[in-house]
Design a protein around this nucleic acid. Structure first.
Length: 225
DNA sequence: ATTTGATCATGT
DNA sequence: ACATGATCAAAT
């Protein structure tokens, strides 16, 4: 999906565009973007995210950069119920098992990716046709001291497991706010990993995700839900 | 082949 | 209801 507008010159212009989208349905937004809307997201999981990027003027997706590189802002959609409850986890970045992970939290991809995020709530779960889901009020967020501390604690726990080569028993149950789960085309999607003995082995590709309880807390703290 | 965008589907 | 593990498409 190519962008249909120029990138916003600054954060306030970006937020102004967001205010223009709030309360509108996905069908209305898609009409502006001249994009057909799928009935459901089973085979179009990234549709809403790509659509909003496009109408907000984010640079092309699938690049290893923030969505608004000149502003240092990453945009993420957040599926929520009508009551504002977050429905899904949020993918952050890949979790390298090959020894290339940053040595400290401050240097990590997770820390950098989450330094400034534009959360775009979208109201409506799988029971609501995509076209009828509604764009919510955007939130330009920088993690609080408490949120940073919680994320850092989990990241260090998870990084330690990987650093020891113990990815074999690394699953989604680790981490209170941040977790690691499979990320790929299928469970057969393997990457190179360093074992406990320092040998190269193949293991399932994984990524860092924010648990819904984390993003739920972010919305609660900012919208008084 | 990889990174981006995520949600689906199943089990507890 | 919710968490975990599995999966889908587009862009580069």
């Amino acid at each position: 999906m190519r962008p249909i507008v120029a990138p916003p010159t600054d954060a306030s212009e970006l937020m102004q565009r967001c205010r223009g989208l709030a309360g509108r349905t996905i069908a209305e937004v898609a009409e502006q973007g001249r994009v057909p809307v799928p009935a459901n997201l089973k085979r179009h999981k990234g549709f809403v995210g790509n659509l909003l990027e496009r109408v907000l003027g984010a640079t092309a997706a699938s690049r290893a950069e923030p969505d608004f590189p000149h502003l240092g802002i990453e945009m993420k959609t957040l599926p929520v119920t009508a009551q504002g409850r977050v429905l899904q986890s949020t993918y952050v970045c890949t979790a390298p098992l090959d020894g290339s992970m940053a040595p400290t939290w401050e240097a990590s991809w997770v820390c950098h990716k989450l330094s400034q995020v534009l959360w775009m709530p979208v109201v409506g779960g799988p029971e609501v046709p995509v076209a009828e889901r509604v764009v919510g009020s955007a939130l330009l967020w920088t993690p609080s001291a408490e949120e940073r501390a919680d994320l850092q604690r989990d990241w260090e726990l998870l990084a330690e497991i990987i650093a020891r080569g113990e990815h074999g028993n690394l699953d989604a149950r680790h981490g209170e706010w941040l977790q690691i789960r499979p990320k790929g085309s299928s469970s057969l999607d393997l990457v190179w990993a360093l074992s406990e003995e320092g040998e190269w082995v193949r293991d399932q590709a994984r990524g860092f995700y924010l648990r819904p309880r984390f993003t739920r807390r972010v919305l609660s703290a900012n919208y008084l839900i």
